[in-house]
Design a protein around this nucleic acid. Sequence first.
DNA 1: CTAGGTGCAAAAGGTTTGCGGTTAA
DNA 2: TTAACCGCAAACCTTTTGCACCTAG
Lengths: 145, 145
Amino acid sequence: MHVSKNSKSPPPSFFSTLREKGLRPTKQRNCVFRVINEKQDHPTADDIFVRVRRRLPTISFATVYNCLETLVGCGLVKQVNIDREPARYCSNLNPHAHFKCIKTGKIFDLPLDDLVLSKIASILPRGFNADHFDLSFSGTLTDLN
Amino acid sequence: MHVSKNSKSPPPSFFSTLREKGLRPTKQRNCVFRVINEKQDHPTADDIFVRVRRRLPTISFATVYNCLETLVGCGLVKQVNIDREPARYCSNLNPHAHFKCIKTGKIFDLPLDDLVLSKIASILPRGFNADHFDLSFSGTLTDLN
DNA sequence: CTAGGTGCAAAAGGTTTGCGGTTAA
DNA sequence: TTAACCGCAAACCTTTTGCACCTAG
């Protein structure tokens, strides 16, 4: 697994990233991308559909799914899969885990530093080459006043 | 207690665990449990249905799902969720991560020792109390000859 | 006896697909 | 101009549910 210094990369350019792959920066894709970036609350496809539709009242569900697939494929957003729940989408492209509060359903990002990343990578035996990993927790939050 | 490698009876924890919860150790539950324990290949509900049906030809899909839910709820088996794929079931109750080979689809267990477990727990900020975590990798296997 | 479990069929729910019409480059 | 994309509806696939019948304790 690739482990690098924990430098925060500049926000990816929506237009240049798509163009590099020969894909069109359509208004639907742009709008889906902006909705995910505006509010860091890990919306589901359904949440995104509702928010996008306020700006593009004719967009369809299928197009939202298509846009999400494209954006995830380009690395412009991340898909978050926790248990068997509907997929959520996340604009945080830095290495992080997720914590889901089982009382509120809210999802929190937990940043992962290089030390933790290398410890996680050390789990892999020789010959196991990971492209990708997912770490998620679920539990409750203590009210610390 | 008689214990042998090739014993066809399930580990006693099956009966006592269910009884402790006031649940019945039915032949359907027993069979599902045995199928998961016999072959450590992370079968899906569908795989389990096919294998169980060879022994209990009248068992229904819904019953397989019900049994799985019961067994997972009792802690007798673990449900493995990787990405958006169908759930898989696992008899390894020790702390472990999963590695999925993207070429073959095969799933491997990666044991987690106490040092790694405490490092993983250290990711949680104050006030985050995790009941549960999931760690999974995906990638390829190098043929090491 | 009876609470709990099974089997069946049908539905739910998230996601994907096929296709005719539209649009960005 | 034209390949890529959109919108719509229908399909897909895993999982859940409602209900009548059955069974373990």
